[in-house]
Simulated scan of single mutants.
Amino acid sequence: MSEKKLRPWVKLVLELGPIALFFAGYVKLKDQVFVIGGTEYDGFIVVTALFIPLMLVTTGLLWGLTGKLSKMQIATVVLVVLFGGLSVWLNDERFFKMKPTMIYLLFGGLLGFGLLRGQSYLRAVMEEALPMQAEGWMILTRRLCAFFFALAVLNEVIWRTMSTEAWVNFKTFGLTAALFLFFMTQGGVLSRYAIEEEKKD
């Protein structure tokens, strides 16, 4: 299936919509307890159970509308189903809270493996959208690898030492802001090693 162009706002809604709805659902249901099949489930578990099919639907829509999914999107939805499903099945919110840790360890580990081989796997994924010299890709890859490992550690610290509400706020706003700020601070590397396309008469 060939890749199709998608309006940026549609892509943004499909990617960030589930996270926003998870936060809104948690805020509304966090203090409630639901009895299903004779078992009590708190609001967090119920919202997690709703979040899983929502992620599957929006990811499916992205694939249907664009004809393509990135490896990061596929890995994310697989881990959502795995850890979210474990949380719901075992009625234990800890598994879902561990999901960001696993995601960032996976991404950091893949980038680190590439670096050990003298390669930038980040370049292989983003080179078409962001032409840059090889040295620039290696610098950006090393920084992003370290950043992913730092986020994994930070997520573990927060969910293990703080309340569920604090973790939900961190997951919804903190991780998004951290990723945005990281790439904002890499402007120097992006401009220094950028490859300008040759103009053709």
Rank of each mutant, 00 (worst) to 15 (best):
L130S: 07
K171Q: 04
Y104V: 01
L62G: 01
G84L: 02
M98C: 05
T161I: 01
V157Y: 07
F147V: 04
V47H: 08
A129E: 15
P8D: 11
V13S: 15
F23T: 13
L21K: 03
A129Q: 15
T48Y: 03
A166W: 14
L115S: 08
G38E: 14
Y41D: 05
V13E: 09
L144P: 00
T164N: 14
I45N: 06
G108D: 09
G118P: 08
A178V: 07
K5M: 07
F107K: 01
D31H: 14
T164C: 05
V80Y: 05
V80I: 15
R117Y: 00
F182S: 10
V77R: 03
L6C: 11
L54I: 02
T66P: 02
F147N: 00
T176F: 13
S70C: 01
V47P: 02
K4L: 09
G109H: 04
F107S: 05
L190S: 02
V13R: 06
S120G: 08
K71C: 04
L181R: 12
G38L: 12
F180W: 11
G37Y: 11
Q73M: 07
V168E: 08
L106F: 13
R142Q: 15
V47N: 09
S191R: 15
L69N: 06
G17F: 08
V81M: 09
T172A: 14
E156D: 07
L105W: 14
V78Q: 05
L16W: 12
L79H: 01
I36G: 02
K97G: 11
V88G: 03
L181F: 15
V35G: 00
G114M: 06
R123A: 15
F96T: 01
V77I: 10
G64S: 04
E197H: 13
L14V: 11
F180S: 04
D92L: 09
T164V: 15
N91F: 03
V27Y: 09
E135D: 15
T48L: 07
L6H: 11
V57N: 02
K71N: 10
M132H: 07
E165L: 11
V88C: 06
I45S: 06
G43I: 03
F113V: 12
K200Q: 14
L130F: 13
G60D: 06
F149I: 04
L111R: 05
K71M: 13
F182N: 12
E165Y: 10
L175A: 05
V189E: 11
L181Y: 13
R117P: 00
R160E: 01
V46K: 02
T76F: 06
I103E: 00
L179E: 01
E3M: 04
F183P: 02
L110H: 12
F34L: 12
L50S: 06
L110Y: 15
E156H: 08
V57A: 11
V81I: 14
L130R: 10
F149T: 00
L14M: 12
K99Q: 09
G188F: 13
V81G: 03
T39C: 00
A129G: 13
S191C: 01
A152E: 04
L16Q: 10
R117D: 05
I195Y: 04
Y26H: 12
L154Q: 02
G25I: 06
L115I: 14
G187L: 06
P131D: 09
G60P: 04
L21Q: 02
Q186L: 05
F95A: 01
M138N: 10
G112C: 08
